[in-house]
Design a protein around this nucleic acid. Sequence first.
DNA 1: TTTATTATTGAGACCGGTCTCTTTACGCAT
DNA 2: ATGCGTAAAGAGACCGGTCTCAATAATAAA
Lengths: 364, 364
Amino acid sequence: MDPTPPRNSSVTVADVARMAGVSKATAARVLGGYGTVSDRVRDAVTLAARNLNYRPNELARSMTTGRSGTIGVVVGDIENPFFSLAVRGITDIARQAGFTVILTNSGENTETEKAAIRTLLAKRVDGLIVSPAKESDVDHLKDAIRSGCPMVLLDRGSRALGVDTVVADDGQAAEGITRRLIAGGHRRIAYLTACDTPDHCFRTSSDISTGSVRRRIEGFLRACREAGLAGMEAWVRLGALAPEETQRIATAMLTAKHAPTAIIASDSVIGLDVFKVCRTLGLDIPRDLSLVSFHDADWTAVTTPPVTVVRQPVYQLGETAARLLVERLNGDGGPASRVVLQTELVERASVADLSTEEMPRASE
Amino acid sequence: MDPTPPRNSSVTVADVARMAGVSKATAARVLGGYGTVSDRVRDAVTLAARNLNYRPNELARSMTTGRSGTIGVVVGDIENPFFSLAVRGITDIARQAGFTVILTNSGENTETEKAAIRTLLAKRVDGLIVSPAKESDVDHLKDAIRSGCPMVLLDRGSRALGVDTVVADDGQAAEGITRRLIAGGHRRIAYLTACDTPDHCFRTSSDISTGSVRRRIEGFLRACREAGLAGMEAWVRLGALAPEETQRIATAMLTAKHAPTAIIASDSVIGLDVFKVCRTLGLDIPRDLSLVSFHDADWTAVTTPPVTVVRQPVYQLGETAARLLVERLNGDGGPASRVVLQTELVERASVADLSTEEMPRASE
DNA sequence: TTTATTATTGAGACCGGTCTCTTTACGCAT
DNA sequence: ATGCGTAAAGAGACCGGTCTCAATAATAAA
């Protein structure tokens, strides 16, 4: 209609009110959709708003209402398909519920995480979804909670915080897959993770500050002990933080005299690098090495052989976290809940059964 | 120190000022880090702020300064590794420059995109980075620009908008890979994309509203024409929006009488599904089908055979977009620039050379 | 017709910062 | 001692909405 609608660099309710010939309060009522207004006035204001190309200032609104309509998300690394899928779940639910998402990467670094939380709090997010880098260092999270900001923990719980938590049954999953490997005759089973300790050596599971990984390692060790395998702590390898390091560690393990017959990769990024190393070293999976990875990443189904994985309901993890948070924001004052989503072992062809394989050979 | 620091549900500068025994203006000067204050007062205010556990309200600050310190990002789908990597690039740069990122998924849907832009504008983002779902429908973007919100287009340009744009040299890349296939003796080359038209049929490249894809198809057709191949438009297949559809389309193509000898997948998600279909159909790559995919996704290097891809500098795409935007926000008033990042053809083993393969057969 | 009740509208405070303008005070030169 | 320049601090408006409360108009009840 109007060929050059105004620039509206900042058309305010007052401007609209003036043009419509009503008070600021009345215009605000129409524009904000609250209170009671006559149809005649409503039309006049709506028309004026359209003509002026009025755009509400959500900032000003948040100012008085105290709700910003945003939720802050802190993940380790959005580039990791695990997180990008979870974030997709979060944003989908958030959008449905009328919230927008401010995304932050901690890079699995507590300092960055602290800064992120501070920024998000300053921006007055209505709630937080956090995947804490370290469970042991959560004072900043405690602060946020105490200051009244609802929080949901994603993938990594910290019971000390007493907030809603959504995790997968990592411990059981690891226990199950370990048991399966042991039943298949494996004894030298390595667990490879990005988590690290100051001296890069694993001693006890309490050294591991990333909740999900700690639970997995505990499950791994539990299954080992159950089978009478001792000293399996030595097979837990840390520090697979980047592709180069992962490949260095995997290469070292696999070329050593006492090489593992099976490796459990703590996430799909690590699993991929282990796979690459095998290819580089000319090792055949599963003949020379059995491989199991956490996270059913897309690539795991198309390799030769396809790799056996622990399928986590990642999207649902994000969805559930967001849903829990939205409930809180809508006034749910119930006690903190801990949702544990079931994982599923997807058996493909990267695991060898040493026991039955040996048998026919022995009898032939 | 203090065992129970206050709840600070809303400690304001006024509160801090009162406790420090100074005026609100003075406290604000200290807390906001502007103006001039005596050391004695500064210390008093700082101490009071700490005791009260004061947290600045960024919303209120934005209100007066007119800058929110956030940039809005609209991508098609964060779950797609292409976008998650680009977003990583964006957030890294944004954080360095002191901005936070509000992330939105359009789901490649223009209506959702419009709503997202509206919301982001209402939240008064300082700038926008958008990957428009359709180049043909950009009035909402034009509006945003006219209202004074700096914008950078990511991966998909629209010259009509006259704003900074960062894209890969999609046209050349497609042209190059097509030429290579043709030189290898391929004549029946299919191009498979998620983009769609109302009747699911491709006629002319102007039907394609996603900029990057349109440029690729144009490159593809250019190379075909150059080689004297006519009617290759028929080999452009649309509508690979979801795994099921991609697999349906690929299966139909590959089981038809006139099956393609090569398929170019418009992104790695589609490439993966084509790969799966080949496996299902028992087709050998590259003997029965040559496959090339856009985007050097992690899985492409570990399949058997590894697949030839067009490597786009995705992270840098995001980085560059963010950098450009930050420059604008810092007052750069120069003309809109169009940055074209070079792609790289990563030749692996999924492409067969029909010409040399046929020759020995013919002479045997 | 008068009063009670309700629907509309207006005036203005408020949210929590920033920022301009003014006042006060101090140090130094004349 | 007087005057001036400048540093430090206070007062209060303002940003753009929301929201309470009072005022007015319209409708219903008596």
